[in-house]
Design a protein around this nucleic acid. Structure first.
Lengths: 144, 144
DNA sequence: TTACTTGCAAAACGTTTGCAAGTGC
DNA sequence: GCACTTGCAAACGTTTTGCAAGTAA
């Protein structure tokens, strides 16, 4: 289990009780999820592991995990929600080319630090962020 | 109308015809939208202005506007899509509270500048960006 | 003991689609 | 004239909810 992410502590701090369902679901996420996932992928894992968790409970639990900051929603291009397991704290941004749609990840500590400072300035207790930069990559630029 | 955003040109370049519905909808967005909006807000504007545009057409048109780069989807924490009117080039970030879901916009020139520099460093000809900071707001933090 | 949590099935939600009529070029 | 676009209503897939039974503290 990811040491930085103490489920029980997070639940207690937010007055949620620590149930079997929540522990099981957290375990599935912590064990299988690298970056992001959607609800149905997660439910397939639940089915594969034959866990006693219904779709309804999964959704209710995801909502709680989001509230206590264990996961967060991210937007891709399809209709349903995707989630990111925050505990990995994999801070990174993306550049996206408007033409070829290529997505490139990057890390930049200066910006990460500034963003954290800005969060506090705005009165927000920082959990995570996403940064997406839209533009045109060199290749597409030269092909115009 | 925003001079930087020529609807007819955008449509033609992408082989979409220039219909009354598309012109009307663009006008509504260009006139009323400051930052971001969701489909229902937009439909309320359509109803208020008594425009002959159905929900179905609005969704179909939004999808086209997204394709031709007039708007883009942004993710907040709720289920439905939010859009951002790109033409305003209104660079700003959002803070989002994990608990109460409140979204607050902010401007920060230092970060905007850094992000532009970073884009060039990454080989991207900068067009725009989105920055979303996730955390818990003071109010929710104090209510825990 | 008492409030919270669960599974089930049904409902709700935002969005998409098939179709026939209408419009742009 | 012909392909594209529209409104309508029905369908879609995801997520939420009411309820009765079960569980945590």
């Amino acid at each position: 289990m990811n040491a930085s992410c103490n489920l029980i502590k997070h639940l207690k701090e937010n007055n949620f009780s620590c149930t079997e369902t929540r522990k099981l679901l957290f375990h599935v996420i912590d064990e299988h999820i690298q970056h992001h996932f959607d609800a149905d992928e997660l439910f397939q894992l639940i089915v594969a592991d034959d866990l006693p968790i219904s779709r309804a409970s999964m959704y209710r639990t995801l909502s709680i995990f989001e509230t206590i900051g264990i996961i967060r929603k991210v937007q891709f291009t399809d209709r349903h929600a995707h989630y990111e397991y925050i505990c990995h704290r994999n801070l990174h941004g993306h550049t996206i080319c408007t033409k070829c749609k290529q997505v490139v990840s990057f890390h930049n500590q200066t910006i990460d630090k500034l963003i954290k400072e800005l969060a506090e300035e705005q009165g927000l207790s920082y959990f995570s962020h996403t940064l997406e930069i839209i533009g045109m990559c060199r290749k597409c630029l030269s092909e115009r």
